[in-house]
Amino acid sequence: MQLTLEKAKEILPRYTTEAHLFTHAQAVSACMEAMADYFHEDRDHWAAIGYLHDVDYEKYPDEHCHHVHEILDPEGIDNADSEAIISHGYKVCGIEREPETNMEKSLITVDGLSGIIMAYALMRPEGMNGMKVKGLKKKFKDKAFAEGVDRQCIKEGVERLGLDMAVVMEACIKGMSAHAKELNL
């Protein structure tokens, strides 16, 4: 069965308890929804992939992305959806499966980018309201800001997508702004 956001929200709480991981799931989901809009794809499906992308992280932090099939196969989730989730661990988690589709390329890109946007929104008195690409780019270039985020992975993802960084940033700002209330931003 193709993953839906409703199903993803049913599955994730069975494997995740930490509040920050749910917030991250929502942020990545919002960005994926916006990227689906950009590519004229199924926004619910892409949002679901984003929401469930770290399904094995809490239980297997040192083997992240290596237990996705054992969790999602019994749920009846399509192999292609599990593989899309796995592909976001390319190189970083020892995953050799390179992201191939626009959905997979978007996921590996927005995973980290959503973290930078979240950190930027939390430091701004107005949160997501009025956030601009110019300000986000400035924070992106500041290596001391949200220093745990792998900027090279984001850059490579943008290159794989064949897009300009500003286009991806604008989409993610739009996506996270639409869900600012849920993200407490």
Rank of each mutant, 00 (worst) to 15 (best):
L161Q: 09
E104Y: 02
C172D: 09
N184E: 15
Y60W: 14
E182G: 11
M118Y: 06
K132L: 02
F140E: 01
E58Q: 15
M176V: 13
A178V: 11
Y15K: 06
C172S: 14
E18M: 08
L52S: 00
K174D: 13
A8N: 01
G50T: 04
I11Q: 11
G148I: 11
L113M: 12
A19S: 03
M128N: 09
R124M: 10
M176T: 03
K155R: 12
A171D: 09
V110Y: 09
D37H: 10
D56M: 02
I108Y: 01
E159S: 14
Q2E: 15
E126T: 12
G148P: 13
H45R: 07
L52K: 03
L122E: 11
N102V: 01
E182S: 11
G127K: 10
M1Y: 14
K155Y: 08
M35C: 01
K132W: 00
Q2R: 15
G94W: 07
A84Q: 05
I95Y: 08
E63G: 09
A178M: 09
S29L: 02
G130W: 00
I11M: 05
E6M: 14
I11C: 05
S114D: 02
M103A: 14
C93W: 08
T4M: 15
D81N: 13
H20R: 14
C31D: 01
M118Q: 08
G157D: 09
E63V: 05
T17A: 12
A171S: 13
G162A: 05
A119E: 04
L183M: 10
K59V: 06
T16G: 06
I85H: 10
E63P: 03
E98D: 05
T101Q: 04
